[in-house]
Design a protein around this nucleic acid. Sequence first.
RNA 1: CGGGGUGUAGCGCAGCUUGGCUAGCGCGCUUGAAUGGGGUUCAAGAGGUCGUGGGUUCAAAUCCCGCCACCCCGACCA
Length: 571
Amino acid sequence: MKWSQTLIPTLKESPSEAEIDSHKLMIRAGLIRRITSGAYAYLPLGTRVLNKVITIVREEMNRAGAVEVFLPALQPLYLLEESGRLAVFGDDLITFEDRHGKTTALGPTHEEIITDIVRNEMNSYRQFPITLYQIQTKFRDETRPRFGVLRSKEFIMKDAYSFDVDYDGLNKSYKSMYDAYCRIFDRCGLDYIVVEADSGAMGGDVSHEFMVPSPVGEDILIRCLKCSYSANRERAETAPIPQENPITLQTMKEVHTPNKHTIQEVSDFLKVDPRQMVKTMIYISGGQPVAVLLRGDHEVNETKLTKVLGQETVALADHNTIEHVTGAHVGFAGPVGLKIKIIADQAVSILRNFVTGANKSDTHLLNVNPERDFKIDQIANIRYVTRGDKCPKCNHELDVSQGIEVGHVFKLGTKYSDALKARFLDANGKGKSLIMGCYGIGVNRIIASLIERSHDENGIIWPLSITPYQVIIIPVNVNDINSMKMANSIYEDLTNNEGIDVLLDDRDQRPGVKFKDADLIGIPIKIIIGKKFTETKELEIKLRKSGEIFPTPPEEVKSRLKNLFEMLSKP
RNA sequence: CGGGGUGUAGCGCAGCUUGGCUAGCGCGCUUGAAUGGGGUUCAAGAGGUCGUGGGUUCAAAUCCCGCCACCCCGACCA
């Protein structure tokens, strides 16, 4: 492609709408433009990258034996009702009313659609296993789109769905997708780690997230740097905190804490470390209030709490309920004397002589101890892991960092096949529910997270595999006839005979402008036709990443490129 | 949804506090010339209902009210 014949609107300055590097660079390099909040247009350069990523995804899905389909973005509500997910998605679902007054949704994901097709079209065990996938735009009304294409209302997803007749089969299908994901992210040049995850709204038991480590990532991942343990924040476990050496139980006593509601306020007021305090949160579970005890510096993990309580959802009690249950204003709840079920986090169960609310306004209790002063009904692990916690596998200190979720695989089991009655006849002629898995990749996120990890002060640095163009030819002076002849001849040769993606910067611009733009859009290899060429007939081949320059006579360009391609393809 | 902020040429911004002439600056764009290895220089241009509707006033980019859009923090979210 010749630069003058396409659209690559590069910008010198960062647009004010962008905060993070990848977002700024995607706009400055002319890959995308925002159309409205959470929706982006891909310009020619961005589209080329998108297509390269999609090609890799498609190749690896096909290699893994998955079969491509293309499902509608329009979804009827009745299927979402059937699976019970209409309520789960809630306001995240984008819906509209058509001219007949019928409400239709724009698909946020496609478990229901694919399950509907399979239940209608497939019914014998002989037809399974099968994994179907598609690459398509998804719609979610995110409360707050941000970071450019990292969180948008409209995004491209590769979603795959496996159907098996038994769990053995599911494990195989899952492994096959998991391995394909590794190959996809490897080929895209991404550094990633795989963590155990909670399945959230998708349902099911086992799931893994593919994360690209990045400080701008919205997900928190917990890792043991010694053994291989890794999980996301919702899922992560921690080794139990050991009981300290026997401590003499002190006498419990009341202390006046006027208007001190929060852990921080009470901690400052009483000069007590939050780690020596216990907060009591009143939750509503199955219609009943329940007290949840956590150490002062810990945060409740509602995902875990929900599971411990055996509920679909739990929620914090409202102020009225809290005051009714505790007999005190909000901020002074404590376990002593409470008449409701008490669940304590493990870290609380080993604390002694702690400070907590007295169930009496403006009052806290010192030297409270379980067993002696109140009874814990259940000890559980219901908090988020924090820095300082130990690995549940090897007891080494856990690392807490951030990451961008680029892929997620789930073992769904029969959640959707049960709900939608997707069944098959086994060899004995008995009807059974299909065993499902689902597997998603955020295609746009691959691009943004790659840039986030691979750029410098001059711009993007693409890997050879997904760069919009592999080579950019820069004739320094387009008015020099010999230079342009050479540029055109190399361009034609590489494009037509070698199948290389070449961009020819034929603009009549100053060399500085062309070099800066080439760096900004991140093309891995530059072929520069300039001063050296007019003097010695030599070209210069320069690498974007290292800045290395290889003087090369025209007849050796192809062999040189071949070597460089090989070199750049190595991880 | 709560809190904060912004909206002036394609992009980045100044002007607004304290209302007043023809609304500025940098980049980009057009034309011409010089230049030709890291965003070069000179000259001449084009481009604006100052987000939008209303109000106050002799007079509104500027003050007041409504609305819209966008961004940030939080809540929320495969």
